[in-house]
């Protein structure tokens, strides 16, 4: 693709200004961007990871349920929102590069643009004990 769609460009721009962790993927689930607040939770800087396929980001952050059982990518709210094209929410645990185990609550929704173009999905998340 020569250029991202304008809705995705503007979503990234908005995310870059927000003090709320945000994660953006394309229709195939490929990671496109996460913002500075997401970096603090995920333990990786976006500049270090860059864009990556779902098979990679779905495991790099070591997602697991609250009992410590690893979650496959398709159990992640963001991937569920992507596949169902409906908003989804859930609570998972991740262990980032800093090796800290964090429980995070996720709200994910499909990104539908002009003319009903399906452009991917966005996840907004929080550390559960931060609320």
């Amino acid at each position: 693709m020569v250029q991202k769609e304008i809705e995705v460009i503007l979503a990234r721009h908005l995310a870059s200004y927000l003090a709320t962790p945000i994660f953006i993927v394309d229709p195939e689930g490929n990671l496109l961007y996460y913002n500075e607040y997401a970096e603090a939770i995920l333990g990786y800087r976006f500049n270090e990871t860059g864009e990556m396929p779902v098979s990679e980001w779905g495991t790099i952050f070591q997602p697991m349920d609250k009992h410590g059982i690893p979650l496959s990518a398709e159990k992640l709210p963001l991937v569920m929102a992507l596949e169902s094209k409906h908003p989804t929410s859930g609570t998972i645990c991740i262990r980032g590069l800093d090796n800290v185990l964090r429980q995070i609550e996720i709200f994910a929704f499909p990104l539908i643009g002009q003319a009903n173009r399906f452009l991917g999905a966005i996840a907004i998340f929080w550390e559960a004990d931060e609320r």
């Binding site: 693709m1 020569v2 250029q3 991202k4 304008i6 460009i9 503007l10 990234r12 721009h13 870059s16």
Partner: peptide, 18 residues
């Protein structure tokens, strides 16, 4: 507006593809 003084990769700049 969407690309902060064009410091992002080109594929993130509105209108670049056109």
């Amino acid at each position: 507006l969407g690309s902060r003084d064009f410091s992002v990769p080109r594929d993130w700049v509105s209108g670049y593809g056109l």
